[in-house]
């Protein structure tokens, strides 16, 4: 299992459009990708679930990636967080 933490810098937090792209990015891999904001843990392939977390600027989330392509998936998703949130 791979994991990383990330503190959201974007003014709007994890908002709609990039959240959609995140779900697409995560969906491209076989691994199970989970996002944990401390109170809730959701599947990163599910847009509604990501949005319902309501992650705001300054919140630190923990992301875990587990599966056969976890190395590639974790680095792609970490990169996605850095460029979009």
């Amino acid at each position: 299992m791979k994991s990383f933490t990330y503190t959201v810098q974007d003014e709007l937090g994890i908002h709609e459009r990039p959240a959609g792209l995140l779900a697409k990015t995560a969906g491209a891999y076989k691994s199970v990708v989970m996002i944990d904001n401390g109170t809730k843990k959701v599947d990163a392939k599910r847009l509604m679930a990501i949005m319902s977390m309501g992650v705001k600027k300054g919140t630190t989330v923990a992301v875990t990636v587990e599966g056969e392509d976890e190395d590639a998936a974790a680095s792609a998703i970490e990169e996605f967080f850095r460029t979009n949130f």
Binding site: G20, A23, K24, K45, R46, L47, M48
Partner: peptide, 8 residues
């Protein structure tokens, strides 16, 4: 994507 969302 929302309409295709698994939760929905």
């Amino acid at each position: 994507m929302l309409l295709d969302d698994p939760d929905f």
